[in-house]
């Protein structure tokens, strides 16, 4: 292999949240086993575009570099995924990088995923155990249940499933698949189950679970292999039952 082999990147850039986006091409010297982030680091070291003009380094977000934190999600060759896990050798060339279009762009490839955290707040995706005194140990969880709940707990709020969902966009207020699955996770927990109805009612609020149109892209793209569509169907059933309980009344509606 020739030493001077280069990889072409076509990057959609944006200087500030309100400015227009533009495309800029970069040629990056090839190294074996490089991934998209290592290529971006090359650009950062030598911010010169394909025309030989000096430009500002491309900004992106990252943290763990091992597909666990979800910070580095971007659209690579049209498909949303983690850039730290995208190996250059396995991609079609030239490589197109874009910020995820579902989220507001902060700068270049950095997006603001605040709406995902708002969604987690809407469905109360936590277990309230803070109190003024020691509550003691919680109830035990069956091992079988723990196993599938563990799969749900792998979600890293990366936003890839929201980006792939045709119903999550600026015209709709749908919270997206991730938060629905998180509501299921915390409802499955024996202590979390004590507040199950609050999460279900959160799912029934505007923008909640009813926004799902069953395109099932989410389950195909989730890097963590989370059974999102099973979670959605399970929460569909649970919210329906909760809606009946709310309306007709039930001692178990709590």
């Amino acid at each position: 292999m020739a030493d001077n082999k280069t990889i072409t990147f076509i990057i959609t850039r944006q200087d500030s949240p309100d400015s227009n986006s533009y495309k800029e091409t970069f040629k990056v010297p090839y190294k074996p086993n490089m991934n998209v982030i290592s290529a971006l680091m090359e650009i950062r070291q030598n911010p010169v575009n394909a025309n030989g003009e000096k430009t500002t380094p491309v900004q992106w977000d990252m943290n763990c570099l091992e597909e666990v934190c979800g910070a580095c999600s971007m659209v690579i060759n049209g498909v949303a995924r983690q850039s730290c896990a995208a190996l250059v050798d396995q991609l079609d060339h030239p490589i197109h990088l874009e910020p995820m279009s579902t989220f507001p762009v902060v700068r270049d490839l950095i997006v603001d995923r605040e709406r995902m955290f708002d969604a987690l707040k809407q469905v109360k995706a936590w277990i309230p155990i803070d109190g003024t005194h020691d509550l003691g140990p919680g109830p035990r969880m069956p091992e079988k249940k723990r196993q599938w709940a563990y799969e749900l707990s792998k979600c890293m709020t990366c936003g890839v499933c929201l980006e792939a969902c045709p119903n999550v966009n600026d015209k709709s207020n749908f919270i997206g698949p991730a938060a629905i699955s998180q509501a299921r996770l915390f409802n499955a927990h024996p202590t979390g189950a004590m507040n199950a109805s609050e999460r279900l009612n959160g799912l029934m609020e505007d923008g909640g679970i009813d926004g799902c149109g069953n395109s099932q892209n989410c389950v195909q793209v989730c890097p963590k292999g989370i059974p999102l569509t099973t979670s959605i169907a399970a929460m569909n059933r649970a919210t329906n039952i909760q809606a009946f309980k709310n309306f007709f009344g039930s001692d178990n509606a709590h």
Binding site: G78, V79, P166, N167, N169, S172, G213, N214, N217
Partner: peptide, 24 residues
């Protein structure tokens, strides 16, 4: 209204169910 709020994306995500979603 439901048709209006969707942003179809079969070009990049051409899965069977996504096509069904679009055809629906």
């Amino acid at each position: 209204y439901i048709v209006f709020v969707a942003r179809n994306n079969m070009r990049n995500y051409s899965f069977f169910r996504n096509w069904m979603f679009y055809l629906q």
